[in-house]
Amino acid sequence: MRYAPDMARWHGRSDTEEGLLGRRWHEVIQPLNADTATGVAFVGFASDAGVARNHGRIGARNGPATLRAMLSNMPVRHAAISMTDAGDVICEPDDNGDGLEAAQNELSTALAELLQRQLLPIVLGGGHEMAFGSFGGLARFLAQHEPDTVPRIGIVNLDAHFDLRQGDQASSGTPFRQIAEDCQARGWPFNYCCLGVSAFSNTEALFDRASKLGVRWRLDDEMDLTQREASLDTLRDFLAGVDHVYFTICLDVLPAAIAPGVSAPAARGVGLEVIEPLLDLVSASGKLRLADVAELNPAHDIDNRTARVAARLIARLVERSGAADDSSKTP
């Protein structure tokens, strides 16, 4: 089900004595309306049905509300950037057990509408099952906008897992395999770059499938600070071969000490000193069309560590994406 934005969720400190330079996000964000024409549009994806199907720790359903709470107090650093809340897609269980599939379809519809309005959608998750819905929204938009063109969409996933699993049902472990199948059905290339992969969290079957699908990846132990330039070079090379980027961050790519509130905490992970430059490179590419942040599980967070780092990454993405310039989002 799709729900209108509840702006009461955006609240926080007000430093009125500081004037305009003291504003925070909760004081400037607006609900999406017919007049919204530029900037960032946040969409919540309240679901952990895919995590449950994947036998993970449930709780990501509450991620969007917690992320809005953390983002509320972010300082307004670039007044030209317009930010709107486009509401939530909520996965509701049903008698047929296909509530997740319905929610993914609803998310795709919502994102295609936002892209049509030349907004930059950022999805607040929610389990990584959202990825199939996110990609679907971009695919719908491009198929309608450029029906005679085969689009070169690049998926950049910062993640400890490939999420290429086989399965009878969609889950948080299957979205990129589903996307690969969707691309094959459309006659489109499948361009997937997964950075931060753990050799100890993915089976040989997954590495084999990634290889056969032409996935580019780097392992987490190949992405420490001394190897940062090599990681950036991998991403630069990938971005050079695509025209549109769907950027997705699974918070379990981060070390567990930084991000304990996820479905599957990382034994090693990739530090922020590497993750943030990768984010900056995607933002500066001029090819970013939509983004999402997955797997925040507030029930298992400690002192809101994971929520705070997720909010920092989202705010950095907003600031560096060129969201105030709608030309950066026109295909």
Rank of each mutant, 00 (worst) to 15 (best):
Q116S: 15
F162W: 13
E229Y: 13
G322A: 11
L288I: 14
L272E: 08
Q178R: 15
A131E: 01
D208A: 03
F45N: 12
A143I: 04
V245A: 07
A264P: 02
E222A: 08
E146M: 09
A284P: 12
E92W: 03
G44A: 02
G12W: 06
L100E: 08
A264R: 02
R24Q: 13
A230D: 04
D221F: 01
D280L: 02
E181Y: 01
E319H: 09
G269L: 00
A299E: 13
G154A: 12
L235W: 04
V150A: 11
A160F: 00
R316P: 14
V215T: 07
Y3H: 15
F207D: 14
D237Q: 01
A284D: 15
T306K: 14
Q144Y: 00
D326R: 15
L195C: 07
R308N: 03
R140S: 11
A264C: 05
T174S: 10
P175C: 03
L21F: 07
A259C: 11
D292P: 04
V253N: 12
D325Q: 13
I258D: 09
G127F: 04
E27S: 09
L115H: 12
G125A: 07
A240L: 09
F141T: 03
G39A: 12
P255A: 11
L272D: 06
D163C: 02
R268S: 08
R53I: 03
A103L: 10
S47K: 03
P255K: 10
R209M: 11
L206E: 15
N157V: 09
R218P: 02
S72F: 06
I29S: 02
F238H: 05
R53Y: 03
T330R: 09
